[in-house]
Each structure stands twice: as C-alpha cells, then as structure tokens.
C-alpha cells in the first residue's frame, strides 16, 4: 500500500506531512499535477468534495487538510501535521498567501525566511531600509518540541505590514518546526501585545525545486485578506529571484562551504540542526570527518 521509496529518502522527511496544494486552488473535477520528495503527485478535488491524491499508480493513504492546505504523507506518519498554538486563539483571522513554485531547494527558502540581513536590501522600503542595516545580537537555541527558535530579533522596518505606513523597530521571533516548515511571529501593528503569525510551508518537490505555500494568522484588527495576500506575494516575489540564483541550489550543511557572520546565527543553527536530524533531501550533507 505504501509508496515506493527507491531513493531511500530519510524517514524524518518521508514519514512526515508536507503541504501539497492550497485548497482554494483546487477546482472540482480538475487535476493538480505536482510532486513531493521526487515522486509525482496528482491531487484531485472530486465533485462530492472529497480530495484524492495519487503518486503514479499508487493512491495516497495519508491525506488531510489544515490551515487551508492539503497535506500528504508518502510513508507512515509518525506524528501529526504541524500545529501553531497561536493560530488556535479563537478570535484570530486565518489567511492563506498562495503558492509559488521556486527553482531552488526548499531548505534555501527556509534559510532565506530566517535571514535578517537581507531585509534592508531585498525588501528595501518594506521590511528594512538603509542606513538601518546593522543586525543586533539575537538569541538562537533549541525550540521546545523540536526545531530551533530565534528570539530578540529587532529590525527597523519602514513598512512592516500592509496595515502600517510608518516605520519603527519591530520584534521578531522565528521558529523552525520541521526541516521545511518555518514560522515568524512579529508584533501586531495595532495591538503590540499580540503577535502576527506568518508561516512559510515548503513543499519539497525535488531536491532543487519546491513550492512555497504561506499561511498567516492575525489578531482581528484591520485585516484585509486581499491586501495581506498581495503583500505576502509582493515580499516573496522579491525573494524568489534571489533563491533561484543561489549556487549550489541545494543547501550546503558544511559550515565551511559558505562564509557566515554573527548575523547568520540562525542560519548556522538551522544547518547544524538539519545535520543532526540527518536531513539529506535538498541539502549537501557535511563530508564525513
């Protein structure tokens, strides 16, 4: 019954859940052809509303929905689909940000999402601006429940969200929950005691290509779904050409492969954590010592 795994992809990815389609993008009776972990994948929304998926001749036994996306597991699921506690707060407004195909490893996309130093350049005028380019020290450590967590990130932002037109220094918390799942919490511009949640959910299509899905959850102040979606797509559209021009396309896990500085602390922790987990798909593993 299970999907063949000829590439012997590591269980930490094979037996996990991955996003494969945004629900809103499915049309009755229409197939969505995509891929997951090097296998072909077809998702179909049947006329009765049920969702099917198959990989070649094999029907997918493990399929579910959460946060406005279809999730699939090719192996034997050993844990639940990722869950963001803050998104469960009853008054929050969930918004999906769509799906964008990227010709780069999804691990590169996660690392870029964690990256503070590019905000003032790639997202100049929105998430950063010269001369506010210096990155102050922040703290990175293990996240309770697995993954890593970066706190105390402070960035001057001229236009941190679509609801905001004036700049100020914004607090960020980043969490990597799974190798291909990363979430960012930033202070809400209206109620600064609460945090906006912005999650980037990467679908590892092949080692060198992915689909970036995004999910947001906001406290109920001035949330305009259309403008939130548009903003998210504008920002990610600025990242995509960078991601597609990184060489190599897979993420090198050897600390000596690329030069890092203190501002890259979360990237260094992320790469080390991936090494410890034994993640190989989408990565260039460390050479054995």
């Amino acid at each position: 019954m299970s999907i063949p795994n000829p590439g012997r992809i590591e269980p930490v990815l094979w037996d996990d859940w991955h996003p494969v389609a945004e629900l809103a993008a499915l049309r009755h009776g229409r197939r969505l052809d995509t891929g997951l972990l090097g296998r072909p994948l077809t998702v179909t929304l049947r006329a009765d509303g049920a969702i099917d998926a198959c990989s070649g001749p094999h029907a997918l036994p493990h399929l579910d929905t959460r946060y406005g996306f279809v999730w699939a597991c090719l192996g034997a699921p050993v844990r639940d689909i990722v869950k963001f506690a803050a998104a469960d707060e009853p008054d929050r407004i969930p918004v999906t940000g769509g799906s964008m195909a990227v010709a780069a490893s999804g691990l590169r996309a996660v690392e870029n999402f964690l990256d503070l130093g590019h905000l003032g350049y790639v997202h100049q005028g929105y998430l950063g601006e010269e001369p506010h380019t210096d990155i102050k020290p922040y703290t990175v450590g293990p996240r309770e429940g697995g993954g890593i967590r970066a706190t105390g990130c402070r960035v001057y932002q001229p236009r941190p969200s679509p609801a905001d037109t004036s700049g100020y220094e914004v607090d960020y918390i980043y969490e990597v929950h799974r190798p291909y799942i990363v979430v960012l919490y930033k202070a809400n511009p209206v109620d600064r005691t609460r945090m906006d949640l912005i999650a980037l959910l990467l679908q590892p299509v092949s080692e060198e290509s992915c689909v970036a899905h995004s999910f947001m959850s906001y406290p109920p102040h001035d949330v305009n779904e259309k403008s939130v979606r548009g903003f998210q797509q504008l920002i990610f559209g600025q990242d995509r050409p960078i991601l597609e021009n990184q060489l190599p396309k897979r993420l090198p896990l050897d600390a000596k492969a690329e030069i890092s500085v203190r501002a890259d602390s979360s990237s260094a922790h992320y790469r080390r954590w991936l090494s410890q987990l034994g993640v190989r798909f989408g990565a260039i593993p460390q050479a054995p010592a």
Binding site: N245, Q246, L247, P248, I259, S260, V261
Partner: peptide
Amino acid sequence: ENRCPHRGVRLTL
C-alpha cells in the same frame, strides 16, 4: 567566480 562567498548568490545580480 559568479558566486558570493557568503550565501552563493550570483554576483551578476
């Protein structure tokens, strides 16, 4: 070499 030593982005960008 068309590659930044930091994060590998093509320098032609």
